[in-house]
Nucleic acid binder design. Sequence first.
DNA 1: CGTGGGGTTGAATTGTGTCAATCAACGTGG
DNA 2: CCACGTTGATTGACACAATTCAACCCCACG
Lengths: 236, 236
Amino acid sequence: MFTDATGLSTSRFLPLGGKAGAKPAGVPASPLDGASLPGAPMRAGRDAEIIAQGARAEYCYRIVAGCVRTVKLLEDGRRQVGAFLFAGDLFGWDAGGEHAFAAEAVTDVTLRRFKISDVEERAATDHTFATRLRRYLIAQIGVARNHLVLLGRKTAAERIASFLTEMTDRLDSRPGSGIDLPMSRADIADYLGLTVETVCRGLTELRRHGTVTVDRTRIVIRDRAALGQSTGVRLH
Amino acid sequence: MFTDATGLSTSRFLPLGGKAGAKPAGVPASPLDGASLPGAPMRAGRDAEIIAQGARAEYCYRIVAGCVRTVKLLEDGRRQVGAFLFAGDLFGWDAGGEHAFAAEAVTDVTLRRFKISDVEERAATDHTFATRLRRYLIAQIGVARNHLVLLGRKTAAERIASFLTEMTDRLDSRPGSGIDLPMSRADIADYLGLTVETVCRGLTELRRHGTVTVDRTRIVIRDRAALGQSTGVRLH
DNA sequence: CGTGGGGTTGAATTGTGTCAATCAACGTGG
DNA sequence: CCACGTTGATTGACACAATTCAACCCCACG
């Protein structure tokens, strides 16, 4: 399931030692960056389970490259995807208890693994690190709360528009050039609290209106304004 | 809207100076407890807006007594309640930017207000405090993620059963004695991503099956096992 | 060149929302 | 102290958005 990649050069993605080297483009600032702890380099193949649901929380991870989903599975098969995570993101951060969500590789993934106790120790001795970590956690709370609004109050069409906007913001390096969605329609559906069919219909509807171009995984936003409108806007 | 309660003795609820005094029953452990920062005592009346949606994040709050809801309002009137908060809980914790959610008093509320910059400073000099704060934030992430599953994948009946279970766990000091829900049906509906009518129907259904007794705000769980079953259980 | 898994589309079904009426509780002022 | 208006809760009838069930397509892969 896991490939320990000790022998593999990951320096392409992030400085190993943690001192020199500019951060490569596309990798956002995050705690547990180069300068922090060493972290064990790892790889996980497509659909590999990185964290099992219910497992004791001992390790957390930072993504170097690739995409990860967090997943909660109900006994009758219903599934909720909690988040999609990309390079720079942390996960497995359920300090103390069990992992409430599983974490699975959406694509082949390069990771760094950290013992949670090591991270806590580091936080206890390095204020700057602790502050960055705290900021990151607070941001995560904001992201989750925002998603609550989507799941609780938005229509199918609005959810899909919001999703495309979110993914474009996170993945589209050169605005307008389009993105390749790494995840399946089923993943998207379970992230948005919909069915695969509804996601499809929503996408074809947007295509029909000329708002986006869709070809399997390839998405290009044609009319950003229209997409924004479909999002189900903010503030009273 | 606010009543500055400087002249008011809140020592009934929590030690002011922050050294002596046992924690009163019903107030769970949390950071920003007595021993931390002073914090300005405040009061807010029923339905008062404590934090405005979109306001610059400058202060955060700990609840001493009463109930608070966090709310996001969409321009067409749709509303999502992010969380219900009780004694010991913190809110307003959107460090750095704006408050994405408003915070409103569900009941009359006694609070302590803290400057976020003061809290950050304290965290930078007191590892123990920083750790407790971090643990609390992580727990909040867990709570939010759990709610994602409810909103994304549970049926109306399951949401209502989950809600009653949650509230009983948090409010019922003497198990089986029942609770008084401080919030309206509309609040419950907006928390669960439903309408008032659906919440009502769900409650009467549970009543009809003898699972709970409902009389306006008063709720008594009669058959905890049956309620647990209706919850839409965990783990695959 | 079959085979199978994801994706898309169509038709039927249903859970939940919408609209509307009634009821109960409460505060207010005559 | 009671009539009244107001607000929240409950119930019913109906509508509709999204799910379910089903068929089909397309491409990747053995």
